[in-house]
């Protein structure tokens, strides 16, 4: 059985250090969503971070909820799932420095070198959503919307949401403080079999320009 952990937020450095790759994690506290829309506004557009963000949450979820504004001004949060994180690689160093975020949650992890060069030096770990579509289970874990920022400017999918969560999960621990990654390790094991799959298949008549010829390469 995989190890199961419940983590209170904001996560302490000690609790983060104890997380083991491949463990299942459930979260309690506040997580915030931010992806390219928010990153661009703050890092490139000169907008300020919401006051007190760092003290209320140190968890950045790469997420766009299925949400709707109700007539009474409240929000109906339906499903909650992650979006692919590798696309945000270029923003992360500056974002982590600015916000003091210590846990990233998303889909699919980051390019292998980012764990060692961006996350580990800042004592940040990466949790991945499972599957990637456990939207209903994660939706259940959202107790309340604490705040939402840039809703008018960025829309529901790109706005910054602060969710108060309880038993919010499951997530899997992808990386540790050394910069090791479960995704990277598993990917290498899968790669060992790939060459043999093509044995005996003839080359295509017309090759494609500009692609890697090595199927073991990371494409992200």
């Amino acid at each position: 059985m995989l190890n199961k952990v419940s983590l209170d937020l904001p996560a302490s450095p000690e609790a983060i250090a104890e997380l083991q790759m491949g463990s299942i994690v459930y979260l309690n506290g506040i997580v915030y969503t931010a992806r390219e829309g928010v990153y661009d506004r703050i890092l490139n557009g000169g907008d300020e971070l919401p006051a007190g963000l760092a003290s209320s949450s140190n968890v950045n979820f790469h997420c766009s909820p299925a949400a709707a504004l109700q007539d009474d001004g409240s929000f109906n949060i339906g499903g909650v799932t992650a979006t692919a994180s590798f696309r945000f690689s270029k923003y992360l160093a500056d974002w982590l420095d600015l916000t003091q975020t210590k846990i990233l949650i998303g889909k699919g992890g980051l390019p292998e070198k980012d764990y060692k060069e961006i996350l580990a030096p800042r004592s940040v770990v990466y949790l991945t959503t499972v599957g990637y579509g456990t939207g209903a289970l994660l939706g259940r874990g959202v107790e309340d919307v604490e705040a939402v920022h840039w809703l008018d400017e960025l829309g529901i999918a790109q706005a910054m949401w602060l969710f108060r969560v309880k038993d919010f999960g499951p997530f899997l621990v992808d990386s540790d403080l050394e910069g090791n990654s479960l995704f990277a390790q598993q990917g290498k094991l899968v790669n060992e079999n790939i060459e043999a799959l093509y044995d005996g298949l003839k080359e295509p008549a017309l090759h494609r320009y500009g692609e890697t010829r090595n199927r073991k390469d990371e494409l992200m």
């Binding site: 766009s64 909820p65 209903a136």
Partner: peptide, 19 residues
């Protein structure tokens, strides 16, 4: 986990995936 998620979606009448 995905099978649990389908059950949760049907039980809660909420989308199985947010995307």
């Amino acid at each position: 986990s995905m099978i649990e998620n389908y059950e949760a979606a049907t039980e809660d009448r909420r989308p199985m995936c947010a995307d």
